[in-house]
Amino acid sequence: MNLFLNPFVLYSLVALGAVGVSLALPRRGVNPQVLGGIIAGTAAGLVILMLGVRAVGDGAGLVNPFFYVFGIAAIASGLRMVTHPKPVYAALYFTLTILATAGLFLILASEFMAFALVIVYAGAILITYLFVIMLASQSGKESAEEGLAAYDTESREPVISTVACFVLLAALLTLTFRGVKEMGPGANIAQSAAVIDRLPGKAERALIDAGVIASGDKVEVFSGKSQVANVRKADGTVVEVSAASAGSKWPKSLEVENVEGLGFTLLKDHPGIIEIAGVVLLMAMLGAVVLSRKQVQFDEDQKVAQSRRLREETARL
């Protein structure tokens, strides 16, 4: 087995993490949450540290430094969310997790998803959560532990669950740390580059900005690979403009932006997803409305009275 980390060290750290998490879970009486958090955080931090060492050792260089900020923030706030006895705080920590995740999305060059995440999750879903928490818990008391319900302060079978889940984590990390070389990147670069050919308007704007062609000219065909554009002038003549003919004025690179690429892929390769997502959301909305509607209960006498009244009215009519 060829892992990025020594398996023995890895599994030891996983076990350490398990101990930490199981200590951090809320329980009655002696509650070493802080200690557990420290242990678990130490274990996670050591793994990340060792991964960084390995990355440097492999010559790939250190990962984007913002990863350490957002990654650790995500893990820490996630852990605190799970261990915090108060639902409101848990929801707020979850917001933090989402923000950290959005940061990770950003350094993974997925801006659209990052912003979508913040807007949809942190902006919409979490607010709903908070409303429900306010609605349901109804505990106006500020005092910490005493005002909480037993089901908030006491977790259920923390050790067994933690062990089971950390076995799963060990398995997942075993697979993850083997690397995914056989799936290697790069095969899709050409496809990505080809996207620009389908967006002549983008090339047109870049060429106009760079002053290669005049404002009002139309780029009819653009080849990202050979860096050649067929341009229809305002007077109707068609000329070929290329990197060679434009010289230094030619834009350095004409790349597809994330939103463009994502939108293009979404509509070209997965058009059904938008439809399905729409239907799912619609059904969820209907379901939520139906489920949360207040049911008006009639007892038998009321039903009889109602029907009698209806009969009488019908008879009168």
């Binding site: 990025f4 993490g17 996670a44 793994v47 990340i48 991964l51 960084g52 390995r54 990355a55 492999d58 790939a60 990962v63 990863f67 990654g71 995500a74 893990i75 996630g78 990770l104 993974l108 984590l169 997942l172 990390l173 993850t176 740390f177 690397g179 995914v180």
Partner: peptide, 12 residues
């Protein structure tokens, strides 16, 4: 290795 960083965070 860089991918593994992110996947580690995801797994945890």
């Amino acid at each position: 290795v860089h991918l593994a960083h992110y996947l580690f965070v995801a797994c945890v």
